[in-house]
Nucleic acid binder design. Structure first.
Lengths: 233, 233
DNA sequence: CGGATGCTTCGGGCCGACCCGAAACGATAC
DNA sequence: GTATCGTTTCGGGTCGGCCCGAAGCATCCG
């Protein structure tokens, strides 16, 4: 047996050590909805002094997990990409091994119903959306991604989610196992586009104080066209 | 904005700190093929004293990443489950961000062609197998897994991989993105069963000194029935 | 029943990481 | 220009983790 290459074990350890600190883990979790936040806010969120947060943020950026952009005297930090969100959720999923931890608090109820994960939908709504599409043969399994079928593109146009020019087959989707539900939901470019359209059409809207989502003005009728009943979700 | 629950960030950090040490990362990577190895061997592999390895192994078991079983005066350690293998590969994938690292050495060539990942197949062979099945409508997208279709079960019987009693629809598969190829290959119970049969039928055999796989006596003809040419893989 | 082997526990040394307050820096606001 | 705010850099204190050698238990072997 050859030992695993020293480099690969060190890379693994490097990523691990970036997540190993509760303060850094908290920062990543706070950004997992794809938002960009200034350093001071992240410091308060993690419960540490600005000086400490600055060092942590520097390490996270250096490790390629976060991206920065300066704007005025603020510096906004966000996750470097969807892979990072996926990675963090995978790890969080692995950590939630005990069933007792999954029962969790009533405060999580809106989160379990519908939330954003990076830029796509998760929670029971995300799962229901996936199942709706799959049940209508709207999804095709590709060699490296899940794509919308011709049937699916037509269906989404019919319910008013896609415009005439949109071709869903060009969008690569990833199916990813939902954290709370342990079932598939749609991520990747396809999932992002779909979520974006749901917001644009006023079916969903973001809440001010949480990752959880609320029903928009035209959401009830819209979701019903997909066979989804929000009130029973 | 509510801060993420303290518990979740601590769980994330806990998992991270388990991976954060090169010695522990090396141990996990050495076990990623699903093998069980005694403590002393893992110590030598990681380049540390037995006493140090013992402490590391204890932490990994306590964290739920490894499982032990004692046999005589040896204690054999292996990954606690497929989720752990998935987790480690996800992280290793994230770490291999630079293209230069992916070019790597010629010594990896057999690994890139065909290897085991936990108990299923990966590398170009794993990808080719997935694409063969997908192209023949042998796979169906389910709500929580990828399953073999009726067509697929029949096909695998025809090529001699499944016995008459086998019902592939009962096996849940997961599609997982290959580390070297960045395309889907088949994991989960379905992937494991398939790999097991390929070994039983003598199409593939394990090498003594590596995770890489070699062609078995009846492998060339068998793979050709799947439309896969080993020599051009 | 000794003697080897595999693994663990114990004790102690070492080094790195985390944390904060104070001060410097840059940009905005007045 | 001056004051203020957000952020980073610096210095120093503290704490925990990693590491190993030696000793203690088990297990197998002759």
């Amino acid at each position: 047996m050859t030992a695993p290459a020293p480099t690969s074990r060190h890379r693994l350890a490097e990523i691990g050590s970036l997540l190993a600190e509760p303060a850094r883990a908290g920062i990543l979790l706070a950004l997992i909805d794809g938002s960009a936040r200034p350093a001071g806010e992240l410091a308060a969120l993690a419960g540490i002094a600005p000086a400490t947060a600055s060092a942590h943020l520097q390490r996270l950026v250096g490790g390629g997990l976060l991206a920065v952009h300066a704007q005025g005297r603020h510096r906004y930090f966000r996750l470097a990409g969807e892979e990072v969100a996926h990675l963090v959720e995978t790890l969080a999923l692995a950590g939630a091994r005990t069933p007792s931890a999954r029962a969790s608090s009533a405060a999580d109820a809106p989160l379990r119903r519908a939330r954003t994960c990076y830029r796509h939908l998760a929670g029971r709504l995300g799962v229901a959306l996936f199942e709706c599409l799959r049940g209508r043969d709207a999804l095709e399994l590709g060699d490296d991604a899940i794509r919308l079928s011709a049937t699916g593109t037509r269906f989404l146009r019919d319910v008013g989610l896609f415009d005439v020019g949109d071709d869903g087959r060009l969008l690569a989707g990833r199916s990813c196992v939902d954290w709370t539900e342990r079932r598939f939901h749609l991520a990747g470019a396809l999932g992002n586009r779909l979520a974006q359209r749901l917001f644009e059409r006023g079916w969903l809207r973001a809440r001010r104080d949480s990752r959880a989502l609320a029903l928009g003005p035209s959401g009830d009728a819209g979701l019903r066209a997909l066979g989804i009943d929000w009130t029973r979700l």
